[in-house]
Design a protein around this nucleic acid. Structure first.
Lengths: 169, 169
DNA sequence: TCTTAACTTCACACATTTCTGAAAACAGCG
DNA sequence: CGCTGTTTTCAGAAATGTGTGAAGTTAAGA
């Protein structure tokens, strides 16, 4: 039952207020980027935790939110693949872990979104035709998204190379 | 006073419903990308207009919104440099025009945002130190944003080259 | 099978956001 | 200098979003 060995201390030995300041600032940034508040705070807390994983109760206490709020936030985060759920053997507790080393690549994996933009712009071009000013204007945008779509792929390849080099060297 | 030559017909000769469908779909996409509804709709309408410019009254009528809503939307769009205001000489009306051929580059010019992310991540690294797991985790993110910042610059340069080629050839 | 800790769902209260109508401010024109 | 068409401001109504408490569900252990 009692397994709060280092859990009662904030991870890393920093004081709570200090960690909290970072968590909230980070969360605010995620909110600005379009994430809703609770998932943002939960994710920030997980990323700032020593093990990259916390239980529902820990999150609830650290962020001063209800278990219901944790549940909702985690559901969202799991859905978009930013955290995974782990069952702790021999306990009813669940543990939520930040998914992968490179969570931030999700920020660019707007693959679906990119396709949506392209479809919308294509509709506009079809609708108006390239013989109209607005058709050409929209086509320009379409071309850009196609370009961007390709470029982001090679960008991520370069990042992985860059990162591997840094970690090896 | 009466200068509704082709303004009463929807630009391009398409029927209103068809244009409206595209405008709303495009606007929805902008909303998903973080823009608020009214600015999104106004911008979509301007981009889909033949001349790339409409008066307040035209926007109000086409989108079925109050002049107040147009005013607010346009104020925002002008602030973020996506539309410019023009005074029509010999009239009290104002005309709003989509700014520039390449409005969409604004989507990537998250320059300020990028710096904010970097500052936040730097704070996290300082806070935790590279000798902690969470410090290293956050540092990884920081490195990514630095990389991304540089890459987006060269990406835009490639886009401009690509585009120039397409328009010339 | 029963008990109970843990998580989830749901209805609702509270907060925030968004759009409108009305009044005020502005600017061209006589 | 006042008149009038147009845009802006502002208080508040309406719509949305968000987090909680309480009830419901699940599953570990006896």
């Amino acid at each position: 039952m009692d397994e709060r060995r280092e859990e009662s201390r904030v991870d890393g030995g920093d004081d709570e207020a200090t960690v909290s300041r970072f968590v909230e600032r980070f969360a605010a940034q995620l909110v600005q980027a379009g994430m809703t508040r609770m998932p943002a705070r939960v994710f920030a807390a997980l990323l700032s935790s020593e093990r990259g994983a916390l239980t529902s109760a820990e999150l609830s206490e650290q962020l001063k939110i209800s278990p219901a709020a944790v549940s909702g936030a985690v559901r969202y985060l799991a859905q978009v693949n930013m955290v995974s759920r782990e069952r702790e053997p021999g306990s009813r507790r669940e543990r939520y872990r930040v998914q992968g080393d490179q969570w931030y690549t999700a920020l660019l994996e707007r693959d679906t979104m990119m396709k949506n933009w392209q479809a919308t712009m294509q509709e506009g071009v079809d609708r108006f035709g390239l013989d109209t000013p607005q058709g050409r204007r929209i086509n320009d945008t379409l071309e850009f998204f196609r370009f961007l779509d390709e470029e982001l792929g090679s960008l991520m390849r370069r990042w992985n190379a860059h990162r591997a080099e840094r970690l090896d060297g």
